[in-house]
C-alpha cells in the first residue's frame, strides 16, 4: 500500500468516527428521554443500568392524557387539565407571535429596502441594534407597563412581548431576502401598469416565500422554547405554556422523571417535525441571520 491510500483510509476512518460522535452527541440525549418516557416507574429506579426500556409502557403518556394511576398506594390524579391548557397556550401564543412577526417583517423589510421615506435608516439601525440587547434588560419596566395596561397573563400581552423580541431577527432576514431580489422584476410589473401593493403581494412576496418560511420557523421555535418571559408574565394557566408547566411536575415529595420526560418528548414534537421537513429553510435562515 502506498502512503496515499493509507492516508485516505485514515481520513475515512476519522470521518466515520466524527460522524458517529456527532450523532451520539446530538441525538443521544433525545433518545434517552424517549427511552425514559417509555420505561415503567419501577424500572426507572432500578439499580441495574439499562440503555433501552425492558418493558415498554405508555403509562406516563396516559397520565398526561387523562388516566389516573396508583403510586405507592395513593391514587395519582391525571395532569390532563393542566397539560392540555398549557399545550393550547403554547400553540396559540407561538402561532400568533409567528404570524404577526412574519407579517410585520414582510412589509416592514420591504419598506426598508425599496421605499424611500424620512427616518428610514435610523429606524432600521435602531431596531436591528436591539438584537444585541438581551430581552431580560427591559423585563422589569415591561412588567410594570404590562400591569398598568392590564395585559399580565393575557394572550395579547405575551404575544406582543414575543413579537418585540423576535421581530428584529425576522426583519434582518427579510431585508437580506429583498436585497437579493432583482429590481427589474418589479419595474417590469410597474410598466405593465401594476400598482405597488399589487406588485408586492403578487410578485415580490411569492418570490420571497423561502425567506418568509425561514423567518416563520425561527420565530416559532424561539417562541415555543421561551421560558423566562412566560415565567414572569404568565403566572396562571390562563396563558402558562408547556415550558413553564413541565418543570412544575417536580413535587415536594419526589421528582416524576417519567412524566417529565414524556411531557418533554411531546413538547419537542413540533420542533422535530420542523427540523425533519423544513430543515433547508431553517439552516438557510440561520446562515442569513448570522451574516452581519
Amino acid at each position: 500500500m502506498s502512503a496515499r491510500t493509507i492516508n485516505s483510509r485514515f481520513l475515512l476512518a476519522g470521518k466515520v468516527v466524527g460522524v458517529l460522535a456527532l450523532l451520539f452527541w446530538s441525538v443521544g440525549p433525545i433518545y434517552w428521554a424517549l427511552a425514559t418516557s417509555l420505561t415503567r416507574p419501577a424500572d426507572l429506579v432500578s439499580k441495574a443500568p439499562r440503555f433501552w426500556p425492558e418493558h415498554v409502557t405508555f403509562e406516563h403518556y396516559a397520565r398526561l392524557f387523562g388516566a389516573e394511576s396508583v403510586s405507592q398506594g395513593n391514587t395519582v390524579q391525571s395532569v390532563w387539565p393542566q397539560f392540555s391548557a398549557a399545550l393550547l397556550n403554547s400553540i396559540l401564543t407561538s402561532l400568533a407571535a409567528t404570524v404577526l412577526t412574519v407579517a410585520i417583517a414582510a412589509f416592514g423589510a420591504y419598506a426598508f429596502v425599496r421605499l424611500r421615506f424620512p427616518g428610514r435608516n435610523l429606524v432600521f439601525v435602531l431596531v436591528v441594534a436591539t438584537m444585541a440587547i438581551p430581552a431580560y434588560t427591559v423585563m422589569i419596566p415591561l412588567y410594570r407597563l404590562m400591569i398598568m395596561m392590564g395585559l399580565i397573563d393575557t394572550y395579547v400581552g405575551i404575544t406582543l412581548i414575543y413579537v418585540s423580541a423576535f421581530l428584529p431577527l425576522a426583519l434582518w432576514l427579510m431585508r437580506t431576502v429583498y436585497q437579493a431580489m432583482p429590481l427589474s422584476l418589479e419595474e417590469a410589473a410597474w410598466l405593465d401598469g401594476a400598482g405597488r401593493i399589487y406588485t408586492l403581494l403578487r410578485i415580490v412576496m411569492p418570490l420571497a416565500a423561502p425567506g418568509l418560511i425561514a423567518a416563520a420557523i425561527l420565530t416559532f421555535l424561539n417562541a415555543w422554547g421561551q421560558f423566562i418571559v412566560p415565567l414572569v408574565f404568565s403566572p396562571t394557566l390562563a396563558t402558562k405554556p408547556l415550558t413553564v408547566l413541565i418543570p412544575e411536575f417536580v413535587t415536594r415529595n419526589y421528582v416524576d422523571y417519567g412524566l417529565m420526560n414524556a411531557a418533554g418528548i411531546l413538547a419537542i414534537v413540533p420542533p422535530i417535525i420542523l427540523v425533519i421537513f423544513l430543515n433547508r429553510y431553517l439552516v438557510s435562515g440561520l446562515m442569513a441571520g448570522a451574516q452581519k
Partner: peptide
C-alpha cells in the same frame, strides 16, 4: 436539532 428544542426540556 438541539438548537431547536426548548431549553427547559
Amino acid at each position: 436539532l438541539p438548537w431547536c428544542l426548548p431549553p427547559v426540556v
